[in-house]
């Protein structure tokens, strides 16, 4: 599916794949009300790779849940593919910090799960799952370095390999919007760097719109074409800057002076924002 298949999206907004307009999200009520997001505006253009960075509890996951449609905004409007969310016209893929694979399914069936659920794939699931879909899964597994593991069960794989499988599951139904919530956060440094490259290649291959949440500034600068910095209490976006490095990027580039200075800039921006709040925890 491509842009032409969203029939009645106004042309002026088709480019905006995801948008938050003056969004506010609160949890609880009365004394214990928590404002997770306040007055947040964010626009994602089709094909962009945007990283959200910020301290814990600043509302990064909340933004992803809004995009995924598993959470409603208390105020403001959430647009997905130019339409208000609800009549959700696009396919969404999501990967979390935990691989969240289903332990009773092998890797092939885990990765194939979205094809069983998401239209239009679901309509042909029965007839194609042993042929076309199977090949599709195997091809994707090969791309992330999991060739030959389709019949394995999640418990037989290392954490890094499970996370690769989880990325495949997020991508198998060719989502227009890919939501990644600290997907490499629980991995060791070397595995993480390996997966950055895997992720970049996957993105370069089909150019889905990506919203990546991360704590790791190097990761954000390596992968993203734009970085949004968030602040906590109340959560909101305080800085938004493009990342211009040429692709494909490599781990060696992260030692480049320009790269280092961008990273330090980001760090300063985050630290300054926290100090101005009097929060140095």
């Amino acid at each position: 599916m491509n842009a032409a298949n969203w029939p009645d999206a106004p042309s002026s907004t088709t480019e905006k794949l995801f948008q938050l307009e003056n969004v506010r999200v609160t949890f609880g009520s009365g004394e214990r009300e928590v404002t997770a997001l306040a007055d947040t505006d964010l626009k994602l253009t089709k094909g962009e790779f945007v990283a959200l960075v910020g301290p814990s509890g600043c509302g990064k996951s909340t933004i992803l849940k809004l995009a995924a449609g598993t959470l409603r905004a208390s105020q403001g409007v959430v647009y997905v593919a130019g339409r208000e969310i609800g009549a959700n016209p696009i396919r969404i893929g999501m990967a979390f910090q935990n691989p969240t694979l289903l332990p009773w399914l092998n890797i092939r069936d885990n990765v194939m799960l979205p094809l069983k659920i998401v239209p239009p794939y679901r309509h042909q699931y029965r007839s194609k799952r042993r042929t076309e879909y199977k090949d599709k899964v195997e091809a994707l597994l090969e791309q992330v370095g999991l060739k030959g593991f389709a019949d394995s069960f999640p418990w037989q794989l290392s954490g890094g390999m499970q996370q690769r499988a989880s990325l495949c599951r997020a991508l198998i139904h060719e989502p227009n919007l890919l939501l990644l919530d600290e997907p490499f956060g629980a991995l060791d440094q070397f595995t993480r760097e390996e997966l950055w490259e895997v992720m970049q290649n996957l993105w370069l291959a089909t150019k889905p719109t990506v919203l990546l949440v991360t704590h790791d500034l190097t990761e954000a600068a390596y992968l993203a074409s734009r970085i949004c910095i968030m602040q906590a209490r109340p959560g909101r976006i305080i800085d938004d800057r493009p990342v211009g490095f040429a692709r494909p990027r490599t781990v060696e580039m992260t030692a480049d002076p320009k790269f280092v200075s961008l990273r330090e800039n980001l760090r300063t921006a985050i630290v300054t924002a926290r100090h101005s709040l009097g929060d140095t925890k």
């Binding site: 995924a68 449609g69 598993t70 999501m94 935990n98 969240t100 799960l113 659920i117």
Partner: peptide, 14 residues
């Protein structure tokens, strides 16, 4: 049932 597993399905529109 872990809410995370349910979230995986909800995100897919299940």
């Amino acid at each position: 049932t872990e809410p995370e597993l349910e979230d995986v399905m909800k995100t897919l529109g299940a």
